[in-house]
Every structure is written in C-alpha cells, then in structure tokens.
Write a protein that binds this DNA or RNA. Structure first.
Lengths: 121, 121, 121, 121
DNA sequence: GTGGTCTAGACCACC
DNA sequence: GTGGTCTAGACCACG
C-alpha cells in the first residue's frame, strides 16, 4: 500500500483511494492478480473508515480494475496492454476537455496554455 | 445577463454563477461599474433561489470582483488591467499545477499532454 | 457644507451625515443659529437622496443639535459650553466602553492599548 | 460551548458567534484540533437556525480559525503562537485606527483618551 | 426599490 | 452521524 490520504482535501477520501490505486494499476505498479489488502486491514492502515475503503474497492471492481473472490480477497485484474492504453487515453482526454474550456473562459490562448504546461511539467 | 445554469451538473449553482460572472469580468465583457441585476431579479430570471444568487454575489464581492451599495445594488469593480492579468495568471496557474500531477499519475509524458492540448483547443 | 460621503462604506449615509454635522457643532465649527442648507440643496450638493438628508436632519433635531422653523429652514441650536462638554463626554464614554471590551476579548492588556492609542493619535 | 447570544443586539447573530469563537481561539481557550460542536448541535443549544451557525462556521474557516472534514466535523486549526499574535495585532490595530479618528472628531486630546482608557479598563 | 439577516425544512454525499 | 446545497418565505434598514 503506497497511498497518501489528505483528510482536509475537498476530494472525498473514497475517491482519493480509487484514483491512486487505479492509476497504480494503469501504470503497472500493481501487477495482475496482486492481492489487495483486506478492507479491514486497509482501513486500519490508512486510518479511515471501513465503509470508505469498501466504497473505493467497489468502485474499482465496478470499473473493472479488480475482481473479488469471496472469502479470499480482491485481486488486480489482468488488463491487456492495449486496454490500459485505452483507459489512460480516455481518462486524460476527458480531463483535458474540461480544462481547456476553463482556460478559454479565462481568455488564455494556445500559446499561454502550452507555456503553462511546460512550466509545471 | 448571459448566464447558463446546468441543474444537472455536479457543480453547485452558486459556483456556476460565480465562475461565469467572474470570468466575464476578467475578460472585460462586463465593464467597470456595470450595475449587476439585483439578486431578486437575477433569481427570478435564472429560476433559482434568492439565497443561491446572494451566495454567488457574496463570493464575487469577497474576491474583489464587485462592490455593493446597500439600497442601490451591486457593481463591477474597476479592476486595473494589470490586476486582471494577475488574477487570470494565478487562477490558470493553480489549475494547471493540479492537472499536470494527474496526467503524470496516468503516465503521460510532455508530448502526450501537448497533443491533447492541441486536440481540444 | 464640509462633508465627505463614502458611498461604499458599511456605515449608512444618513449616519455619516449625522455624525459629521453633529461633531462639527460639538467642536464649534458650526455656530449657533447657523442656517443649515435646505434638504433639497444638501441632497443635490452631496449627490444623495432627499430622503437620506431628511433622515439625518431629523436625527439631528431629535438629539437636540438643530431646530426647525417651518418655511425658513433648520438652524444650529445654541448649545451652552457646559452642555457641549457633557455630550462629548457621553459619546466618547459610550464608545470607549464598547472598545475596551473588544480589546480585552483579544487578550490585550492596559499597556498594549495605551501603545496603540499613542501610535494612532 | 461558552457562548452568549444577545438577540437584542444590533450585531448579527452569526457575527456574534464568529467573534466569540475566534477570540476564544486567539486567546488559546480552545485548543488546536478541538472538535467544535456540529452545526446542528450548536444550533439546538444556542436556539438559533442551523444556517446562522453555518454562516459563522464558514467565516471561521475562511479566516483560517478552523478546518472542516466533511462527515466528521469542524476542528480548531493549529495556529502557531506567532501567527495568533499577528492576527491579534492586526485586528486591534484596525479597530484603534477607526476609533482614534472618532475621538479626534469629538475634539478629545491624547490625555482625554488616555483617561477614558484607564477608566474603562 | 435595494441588500442583510434569519427561519424552518428538505435532500444529498460522505463517513 | 457529519457538512453542503437549495428552497420558500419573512422582516429589517437603507435609499
């Protein structure tokens, strides 16, 4: 478990959990069939509520990142390389569409945005 | 009033109001000392509660976009051009810092991001 | 008329009028039986509503600073020197009582307050 | 909760709440990470509307006195001693600047003011 | 007419 | 349980 929770963030904790684990899977840091810690263990370790962990695990399963074997635990799905790329593309694309609209609202042009990207990368 | 409310959005209505008006001010579409519609008028026109409009107007005042004269109404502040640029820069910069972190999490490199920017602009 | 109106202040305009004129009377800058400008004239000059001026003049009369002669206008009352001192004392005393409470709330001691007084005087 | 609400005061309730709690924090009567009563509990105890309490809590958060964890409650921020002093100084200074002007308007000299301070402290 | 404040009551997401 | 948002309706001071 390599997770950082920010309790004071405006982002819900279960979503922080989901995003960090899913991106670890996408980037290949968590291998196929890796056995995730049990909900209770994770909750204890991260000092969050069991309900919160359960919600994150559920969302991970719903979106196909993990699968559950009753009585044994949760495991990382075998995601083919191509599919990973698809997901990555999709997530990034969706995010970028939202952001570009915001920058346009602020009156930035393409160059302004490019500069900002370089600066922060 | 050139405002579009999306009731289905997950973004609170008062925040939608704030963002649209503040960006109109930043972009100079609303001139200095322009008399905003009264909260009652705006509420009626936009078909939202008076309180919701008030919350947006309050936030606009708090952040220095407008000023209030009780009994007279709310007016666009005279923001010097330089200050507008500062605010714009600051907002965009803050947003970009957040986003770049996300793209990195997804494993995108600088080129990937640049391509996405171009695509959506 | 030596009055300064701040439209954006949180203090109501009629109260600004009242306070500035009453203190001018207390300090003797406006002599006894001085003929105040008519409500309409004052309103025009100060660019405020007639209603606002009327409210201020009424308050001045109610508190004994001026008297009205119907059809002739409003005049500064002949306030004996002793009475002026009384009013001054009373106003300042009331104000100070309020303020000291505030400073105590903030945890300032007598010395801190004295220093502040000297600094701002 | 050691709060006194004066319904007859001209000061809005939410502001009374804000001032009393913030000064308790500044004076160190409320420790860091102290869990404020929930807005519902406070509203019930103080016999005011939930919204009124919320408004006060919001202002406290905005000015950095407390932080909020949705679903958990509101907590007193860990304000370093130096920062507390800064805030205290700033508030007192602002107040004094305003008041001295008033006393001068009334024609009081430095000695008069000093006497008043001593009298009321 | 304007904004400022307060109320009671509701639904939601989150923990 | 918590806070976040929204509603309708009310009264006030101010201009």
């Amino acid at each position: 478990m390599n997770i950082v929770i920010e309790n004071t963030s405006d982002k819900p904790i279960y979503k922080q959990l989901f995003e960090q684990i899913s991106s670890q899977i996408i980037r290949g840091e968590l291998e196929s069939n890796y056995n995730l810690p049990s909900i209770r263990t994770a909750a204890k370790e991260l000092r969050v509520s069991i309900i919160t962990v359960k919600k994150a695990w559920e969302e991970l399963e719903r979106q196909g990142f993990i699968y559950t074997m009753v009585g044994k635990g949760c495991f990382v799905r075998d995601i083919s390389e191509s599919k990973v790329l698809d997901m990555r593309e999709e997530l990034a694309d969706k995010e970028m569409a939202k952001q570009i609209g915001y920058y346009k609202e602020l009156g930035l042009n393409l160059n302004d945005i490019m500069e900002l990207v370089k600066k922060h990368y």
